[in-house]
Amino acid sequence: MPHRIRQDIRQYKGVWVFIEIQDHVCVLDGALEILSKGRELADRLGEKLLAVMLGLDAEQYLPVVSRYGPDEIIYFSHPSLKHYNSEIFPEILADLIEREKPSIFLFPSTEAGSDCAPRLAMRFFTGLTAHCIDLEIADSEEYGNGILSMKRPAFSGNMLATIICPYTRPQMATVQPGVFSKREISGSSPVVMRREYAYDPDKMRIVSLNPPLRWNKPHVQLEEAEIIFAGGRGLSSRVKFDRLFELAEIMKGEVGATRVPVFNSWCGKERMIGQTGKTIKPKLYVGFGVSGQIQHTASIVDSDVIVSVNIDQNAPLNEISDYVIVEDASVFLGKLIERIKRDIVC
């Protein structure tokens, strides 16, 4: 299919990772996780790993980023880069891609990454695979060697699709924070390059009218929680779902949810576990009435112990569970709370 080759893809080399600065105070963990994965990919390709960072006083983050093993760091430091800006950031990165021609460019699938990556893909008319849960380098007779193979849930999360982008560059992906583990590389000393940028502020389409107000997101520590009780459709009502909080309180865990409870406003989106929510790795995960669509299960597979409580003995979650309890989720939940409370009293 020669017509599909729009660029001379051989010119494109190297694995890039967008290092997001979170709330202009620290480097996003998710970005470092992707950087660690990027190290593996770059080693497999025998190419360089490059971290790109934009921020206010970005120098302060260089030591942290360096520890995760990039060969090079390109950074921009400027007051107007304090926040992610959908006009400036893609402009700077597009210019950089144009000149340096990376083969792979990875983003965390945060608000910023989900904004920036598709814009760049549109500019370079290349493919983007969003919310990946795995990345590897693959060789193919049909499509060539050393291509990026990306895995993501498909068909409403019922299947896992492997996706490639063989004919255009860069090959782009966004990855949910929490999917990979971050690994420091000892003795890593990347080449650091500061770049300047010029962006005409008159070109800005979005004008801020008042000083912004700080908004404190309800912080739910799902990613760090050791015990998570997740509720799904099977809990059937807000009242029943609410009992999860009771259990979480006595067992010092957290409450998570699938899409249905969030959609029905039984709880806020900050509790959603899954492809467009959070990825968790607790010691114990118990799903109450969670059927187990892949969008959700893909984000819990790293839990140490998985338990499924579901009236449906064929719920897909059961297959990836260590323990399966076939029982009406809310009935079991009620009895369990009773039982554990009794233990505490004793």
Binding site: F125, T126, G127, L128, T129, S140, Y143, S149, P153, A154, F155, N158, M159, L160, A161, T162, I163, I164, C165, P166, Y167, T168, I294, T297, A298, V301, I306, P316, N318, E319, I320, S321, D322, Y323, V324
Partner: peptide
């Protein structure tokens, strides 16, 4: 530009006791 080369059901089966 993207090609789906494979679909698989996503199962990392566990003990299911």
């Amino acid at each position: 530009p993207t090609i789906v080369i494979n679909y698989e059901s996503f199962l990392q089966k566990r003990g299911q006791e």
